[in-house]
Design a protein around this nucleic acid. Structure first.
Lengths: 343, 343
DNA sequence: TTGAAAGCGATACCAA
DNA sequence: TTGGTATCGCTTTCAA
């Protein structure tokens, strides 16, 4: 008459309770360390948990308790750009340390992908969402509003976020770089980056960059936006394209350090000397910069810290602690020696 | 008397059904495209879904149906090593394309972290798990056995996996590299990598490497295993340490291309010429190799493809298709020009 | 300190 | 083509 333990042959809380000779409520209390039971009871229950190899079903728990899960949806554009892997690492480490899990979403830089992912991930009743970028489809925004869960928008500084935001002022960081290159004496400048359907942080940087370059009497001769991932090789062939389609370029600003390194390699392969023949500036101060012979002119951004800050804001909100709605992350120009600094 | 819509003020299926004037079973059937309802009914239901902004609660669905979720737990050691970010990208893209989500776990190369993460993620009733590496704690193995869900172990080739496996023969890839360096005439060789508590693929490569070097009459003079992440800067300072603590090293084999690049930069910074003064070999054929002036001697590994294969095996198993328990991924030596190939 | 009963939001199963 | 009812595993609530 052995009544089936359960359909899916997983050990359930009632079985643990039955084996321990207590009610399932008591077992539940023990497992949640809720208090209000004797030490003897506790021991009995825990022993059976071990014996039976009981694993709680959090699905059922969240469901029953009508509270939030420990899932946090995290969307980033892609994993080929080291900038984002660092941010993600910061997020996941912090989240993990506090008992939460990241559900990953690679949005490929498109709002449609993001919206699709948001719809799916929301159906899992996540505790909150961390989204890269400030631009979302109207459908996505509506869902986020209705969901009533914390949302942290990261990367772009966003002073009027849906909910919370942590990021940096990309416009200013581009502006600063432009001003610096102008101060170095460059006037004819090129840009190599990648482009996507949606406006994004990189395009904001470029806007700021153009503003200061033009304001300083220079010209952004050509802006090359490749349909590719912002990494080494596109930096290489992008530089080739840029230089062959425009002449007189004295300096190139790249979307990030990986692309800048690719560009640097191209220039040197073609016998150009950096910075004597051409200046190179990157962005992000990525790990590769730490081993380059010439210190790459770049913009330091604490990616890991940014990710951690996002996770912290999320967790603080989930614990009902007061959280500022917007946090500004500092960046810092690194002069480097891949541009000729004529002070 | 407006009775509360529901505790958490989310729209539920019953409300949609009530609004549409049908039973919740009918509404459920419509939403799942199950068939067996009139077009009129369908239209009524769908209209209310839109009006009310209904989002299904997959938690409840999985729970009720006693079937598996669309979550797949994916554990990788860290995000600082590009090798793993590429694999992860392959996994998540493929998983996402087929309606599944990755729940990320960064195990920091320790079995304890992995076990802790497995325990947590299992409590969410995932459809399956993808784990990096073949070594797991006994506690983890027991949980995996009991869970009764598909598990794909990736990265190491594992002919007797817990369930399924896809990876490459790291021993052989190290062996091949050793044999090649011997064939180039090198005899006193060094190694720079990172080490962790657990045995792992990198150490297996090193074993294979030593075997062929020693078998070929050479010596692995010194093996440096840093407690750090396998990326650029550790390659740089690791090389410094290696060269200052051992003399007569003619060639260095690195754990991966990022470390090799760091090492190369160190050597050139110190005025050594590569490969004339010292040979450099990497592993993995990472993106940076595509822009280096000198083609880096390395081992090509299709990381993205490996990740995709893992996701495919998982999804095939979940659809009850036949799946081989083990899949071997090819690698290929890239001679390059950072070692002096004296044929 | 403990337990019994009612639900959470969906699906399965059977009946109409 | 539709709907009623039991149920999934757990927590909440209330009573003992």
């Amino acid at each position: 008459m052995s009544e089936k333990t359960s359909k899916n042959n997983k050990v359930s809380l009632s079985e643990v309770a039955r084996a321990a000779g207590v009610s399932k409520m008591t077992a539940s209390r023990v497992l949640r360390n809720e208090g209000g039971y004797s030490e003897v009871t506790r021991a009995k229950v825990m022993e059976k948990v071990d014996t039976l190899g009981y694993l709680p079903n959090r699905l059922a728990a969240v469901f029953a308790g009508d509270k939030t899960s420990t899932f946090v949806g995290v969307s980033i554009p892609d994993l080929g750009n080291e900038v984002f892997t660092q941010v993600l690492e910061g997020i996941d480490r912090k989240l993990g340390a506090l008992g939460h899990q990241s559900v990953l979403g690679l949005t490929q830089h498109t709002e449609q992908e993001e919206e699709k992912w948001i719809r799916t991930v929301l159906s899992w009743q996540p505790a909150g969402l961390i989204l890269t970028g400030r631009y979302h489809s109207t459908g996505a925004i509506e869902m986020l509003r209705n969901a009533g869960i914390p949302v942290v928008e990261i990367w772009d500084l966003n002073t009027s976020p849906l909910d919370m935001s942590v990021g940096l002022n990309h416009f200013d960081s581009g502006f600063d770089m432009g001003r610096y290159l102008i101060s170095c004496g460059y006037r004819n400048i090129g840009y190599v980056g990648t482009s996507h359907d949606t406006a994004n942080a990189a395009s904001t940087r470029l806007d700021g960059f153009c503003k200061s370059v033009e304001g300083g009497g220079g010209t952004v001769v050509r802006q090359l936006c490749l349909h590719d991932t912002a990494t080494y090789y596109p930096g290489y062939y992008g530089t080739e394209q840029l230089l062959s389609s425009a002449s007189g370029i004295e300096c190139i600003f790249f979307q990030n350090d990986a692309m800048a390194f690719g560009g640097l390699q191209y220039c040197e392969a073609k016998g150009m000397s950096v910075p004597d023949d051409i200046g190179i500036a990157g962005w992000g101060d990525l790990p590769i910069a730490s081993v380059m012979r010439k210190r790459l002119t770049s913009m330091h951004v604490p990616h890991l810290k940014l990710g951690q800050a996002a996770a912290e804001m999320m967790l603080a909100r989930l614990s009902d602690e007061p959280v500022p709605s917007c946090r500004d992350i500092e960046f810092r120009l690194i002069p480097g020696s891949t541009v000729s600094a004529c002070s």
